[in-house]
Design a binder for these strands. Structure first.
Lengths: 145, 145
DNA sequence: TTGTATGCAAATGGTTTGCACCTAT
DNA sequence: ATAGGTGCAAACCATTTGCATACAA
């Protein structure tokens, strides 16, 4: 199924739905877990080798801006992204083995934004990145040892 | 005062205490809050302009390895570091305005490492970066508005 | 003496950008 | 028609590394 039906509003912040962005959003939707831009670009390249990396980067930027895609972590110096349907404030756990992603509640008390304190500091923003093993990989990992 | 008395073991993982590393560790110790390598290199450069950036980077790597210095966040694409005397597992809050740093307790339950779960995931590692305003800057900020 | 540290410059590598061309709207 | 999107290549920039030299131990 297509996430970008013809003559339909784009699923993310882009203002024009070009064939390139249709492929990119389809490739993004097809991905299961967390992925790097490099990996996404490889998928896209398999569909249309003429699409350049910068186009993928620009599309990713647009998808992030609209919230259709989220940055869920980092690996080997490159950012990891994943589609996320959860609403509201949350974080993600990324499986270090297969890349699967799950949403996680925020461990911080954000009920009163800007009022959280630690040593008198007013915390205005935070980043929480969680990594580990998904249920399946945890089992596979245990069996191997 | 010197953090590297002559003929004394280096305060961090380096194996040889060269004059360059004495200056670098002194400059590091003189810093109050979080700083980037660029900023540290500027301080060091003021003391001895012949010291190259790579030397500073290598010294920072050594300081991190020994735990004498910690990575406390990121800003504008470059890493932020700070000396930290706290022991055990903890995180840091960095003042977005003046760079002051405070230690913060880990908001996650790490009492049973590797057993923390979220959606069945076994969380093996995490990163928590906190940013905000230190008490003084919070007041200054309020007065300005 | 000997292996670690330095300084320089060049390489890395993910990400961004300038520019001329193309196209969805 | 026209603003936004694309492709290419070059630019960026923090950080790393190769290499010949210097020096702490």
């Amino acid at each position: 199924m297509s996430y970008c039906a013809n003559h339909t509003a784009p699923p993310y912040g882009a203002q024009r739905m070009t064939p390139q962005r249709q492929l990119i959003s389809a490739a993004t939707a097809a991905r299961e877990g967390a992925f790097s831009v490099e990996a996404l670009a490889a998928d896209v390249g398999a569909l249309d080798a003429t699409i350049g990396v910068s186009t993928v980067y620009r599309a990713v930027t647009a998808m992030l801006a609209s919230g259709w895609l989220e940055r869920v972590g980092e690996r080997d110096g490159s950012a990891l992204f994943a589609r996320c349907t959860a609403g509201g404030h949350h974080h993600h756990v990324v499986c270090d083995r297969c890349g699967r992603v799950a949403t996680a509640e925020c461990p911080l008390d954000v009920s009163v934004p800007g009022a959280m304190q630690s040593d008198g500091f007013v915390i205005t923003r935070h980043e929480v990145m969680l990594y580990g093993l998904c249920p399946e990989c945890a089992i596979a990992d245990r069996d191997e040892e």
